[in-house]
Design a protein around this nucleic acid. Structure first.
Lengths: 115, 115
DNA sequence: GCCAGTACCTGGTCTGACAAGGTAGCGTGT
DNA sequence: ACACGCTACCTTGTCAGACCAGGTACTGGC
């Protein structure tokens, strides 16, 4: 349905963080700082500067929903959730990730199946 | 030892193909078209345009060795091999890849250990 | 000699990550 | 009430890496 039929792993490499964000939103809604904290802990990103533009992109593509919500202490937070399209994209990403992981694994184990 | 202490996964994402190339050179020497063939088969790259600049970079950093070699039929080929530094970088990459793989896996399995 | 095939390499363009900096709401202490 | 600091939001400019398209050269067959 989507006109931009991503080939596969070639594209995943780029949007790996995007994938992780969608995965994190799968279970429950989260706000930016929360995502930064998790992804930083895993050394997947380096700071906020990565997340906000990324979330804007996701929002623009309709892959996530967003809603302002009061904070118990501090300024309001924008909570992000997974949309229908987002779930769809996530599913595609997931299988791509499995393929990527498998490919890299095969290559690094290196048994020489190339003639 | 190296002055450019790569933080970790943040950098790996970018150089994933680079990592795969080094891994492929680990076992035996290969030439560009051979690498393209393998990596394309795995959907890790899209064409030659990715490999040649990458190999130049690796050569510039001294991570690979290169030597011209006659071809049984066709123009001469430039064969690339792994240098000492290359092997070192590969080792670092390998552990980084393991960490990245584990992190993404954890995140996608998503059990919510963030509260 | 010409043509096709293999192999090399080089621009120009785009996307995504990153660092740094800037705005604003909210709570606390005085 | 005001200032300060914290949390949370977002934007701008820079850079690296991947991609496409195009270009050169050597080889062998016709």
């Amino acid at each position: 349905m989507a006109p931009d039929e991503r080939s596969s792993l070639v594209h995943l490499r780029r949007g790996l963080v995007e994938f992780c964000v969608l995965a994190l939103l799968r279970e429950r809604e989260r706000y930016a700082v929360e995502l930064v904290e998790v992804l930083s802990r895993h050394d997947l990103i380096a700071g906020e500067g990565t997340i906000y533009p990324l979330l804007s992109r996701l929002r623009a593509r309709g892959l996530v929903t967003s809603a302002w919500q009061e904070s118990p202490s501090g300024p309001p937070r924008r909570y992000y959730g997974l949309s229908g399209d987002g779930a769809h994209a996530l599913a595609r990403f997931t299988s791509d990730w499995a393929a990527l992981s498998r490919s890299v694994d095969e290559i690094t184990h290196e048994e020489g199946g190339t003639a």
